[in-house]
Design a protein around this nucleic acid. Structure first.
Lengths: 120, 120
DNA sequence: CGTGCATATTGACATCTGTCAATATCGATG
DNA sequence: CATCGATATTGACAGATGTCAATATGCACG
């Protein structure tokens, strides 16, 4: 059997569902689907991780590159990457011994649209 | 002596300091200044509160309007409003017996620019 | 096939966070 | 000034979160 269709929404779906915060009141449902995305983002280490990955050449970065950028243990970085991945903000791909992460720019753009866009 | 200049950055300053996540790696300093803003946003109740205020007629809402929108105690709503206010995402103004909150759209726009903008 | 690396998982711990009940504050108004 | 209604503060508590040391997993290469 092929991979089962995700029961949970992809981040794109999650965030594409809603008009900007300031255009109409967010439903409780939407709020509860969006908050986890922001929670994943709301940590200095994860912000830097995401930024490192997103701004890295080729749009992707190997964990080996990332570990050295922090004064934190390897498991801690691995944990933060997992959080970002499970929130749908990072894609994960294993190539040989190394694991590469790539930022989901669609998810980021969706979030940005939701937060900003004062409906011009 | 006019109000002393804030020791802490305003949200606008906080967020205006940085180019988008994906354009260059965020410094630790920037990350630590931005994360609290996102943390303030990263709660379903606060997302809805902010959205209610931002989308309310006149761009502002009275606490009395807000309390009723939730199945939560009045102190809890008051707490969440304080978090949003202290993060710099909501302005607070007391008029008579009532307190009105207003969304800082500059802060929101700054955040959005930081998260999104894949530098077109 | 066993040894070495790169990454992930587990378990433990201290700290932070969301919530409520109780209480305080503070303006308006009788 | 006594009271009332709107909002904020305090204190307590259960549950979530960030971190590390120890350990597991799994690929590559001699």
């Amino acid at each position: 059997m092929s991979k089962s269709v995700a029961l949970t929404l992809t981040p794109v779906q999650t965030v594409a569902c809603c008009s900007p915060l300031s255009s109409e009141p967010l439903s409780q449902d939407s709020a509860e689907r969006i908050a986890p995305l922001l929670k994943a983002l709301a940590d200095p280490v994860r912000l830097r991780l995401l930024s490192l990955v997103a701004s890295h050449e080729g749009g992707e970065a190997c964990v080996c590159d990332l570990n050295d950028a922090f004064a934190l243990s390897q498991p801690t970085i691995s944990h933060h990457l997992k959080v970002l991945h499970e929130a749908g903000l990072l894609d994960r791909e294993k190539r040989g011994v190394w694991v590469y992460y790539r930022a989901r720019s669609d998810a980021l753009a969706g979030l940005a649209g939701l937060i900003g866009s004062t409906t011009p």
